Simulated assay, not measured.
Amino acid sequence: MANFNQGTSSIASSCTGASLLTSLLPVNPFSRRESHSAASVTTYKVLTILSWLLVVITSFYYSFNVPQDDIKKWRSTIWGVNAVYHTPFATSSVIASIYWIILFISQIGYVWHLFSGNTEYVNAAAGVGSHFILNNLLQFAWVMLFVRGHFIWSEILVIVNFFNLSFLYFRHNTHPRFIHFPVVSGPLAWSFFALYWNGAIGVNAHSLPARILANVAIWGILVYGLFFLVTFKDYTMGFALSVLTASLGVHQFLQKAFALQWIFAFAIMGTLFLATLVIAVPGIFGKEFKFGREHHIVDPDQERAPLLEDN
């Protein structure tokens, strides 16, 4: 019982943070607004920076250090867990770490736009601020539980954050790229991938039936990625899932060369990457891909909605 209380204390911290967010921001901080008051923007600045620093410091610390709160209980680093539990969804720590470093760096650019002198940029950045702060708090709580071996509880937090980020995506998928990738598609791609990774660890998926199920479930990554590519022309989601699937394939190959999982992973990665290029390359040259023969020049106003087809 003591182990459970220690492991779940981080959830209480995230709940406290969420209560603070609700009290300082408008009655419903997740409601969609075209503009924000100076007081709300200031609150977003403070809470965004604090929550971002919290998750960055915690992630880096527990990537290299084992929790010392109860040395009699099983503890490990983030990637130590990945190394101990050789599940069909174990991933390359190197590639996944690079993904997160790039994501964290890109989020600095997002935070900077909260301090911009351009009112439009500030309102756009503040518009997704509540979801971003909640994402940081949930990610922090996930790390605290994950490194302490509470995999079922950490999976529950992944599920909660997946719904938080999914709601954010479908409500704010037309924001500019400097907001969309660091706040929306990048974290959402990881959250979806973590459902597999954390879930496989939580159920200790080592049996033959579990591996057969994993060989089938992995194709969900392809379906998920193609959905965003076809529906929203979202090449940022395609690239993100391609990198994460490549990370899975590399580790699975090094772990067990004679297996189907890494073959499927590379097949999915290649398909997503090629489909992403089909969507992304025309945009680089000022064109928008359409599923047909016709291409047209993108209207300059569409820069505010670079990932959504203008109907």
Results as ranks from 00 to 15, higher is better:
3 N>D: 13
14 S>G: 11
15 C>A: 14
21 L>F: 03
25 L>A: 12
27 V>M: 07
29 P>S: 08
31 S>A: 15
34 E>K: 14
35 S>H: 12
35 S>G: 00
40 S>G: 00
47 L>C: 03
48 T>S: 15
54 L>I: 12
57 I>T: 11
58 T>D: 15
62 Y>S: 02
77 T>E: 02
78 I>A: 03
89 F>S: 03
92 S>T: 05
103 L>M: 13
103 L>A: 14
104 F>W: 11
107 Q>N: 10
110 Y>C: 04
115 F>E: 03
116 S>G: 09
120 E>G: 00
139 Q>I: 01
140 F>P: 00
140 F>W: 14
143 V>A: 04
148 R>Y: 11
150 H>Q: 08
151 F>L: 15
154 S>D: 12
156 I>Y: 15
157 L>A: 04
174 T>K: 13
178 F>R: 01
184 V>C: 13
193 F>T: 09
201 I>L: 11
201 I>V: 15
203 V>M: 14
211 R>Y: 15
214 A>G: 10
219 W>D: 12
221 I>Y: 08
224 Y>E: 04
234 D>T: 07
235 Y>H: 14
238 G>Y: 06
240 A>Q: 11
241 L>T: 05
244 L>A: 11
249 G>E: 03
264 F>D: 08
265 A>G: 04
271 T>E: 01
274 L>C: 10
278 V>P: 05
288 E>Q: 13
309 E>G: 05
309 E>R: 14
310 D>L: 09
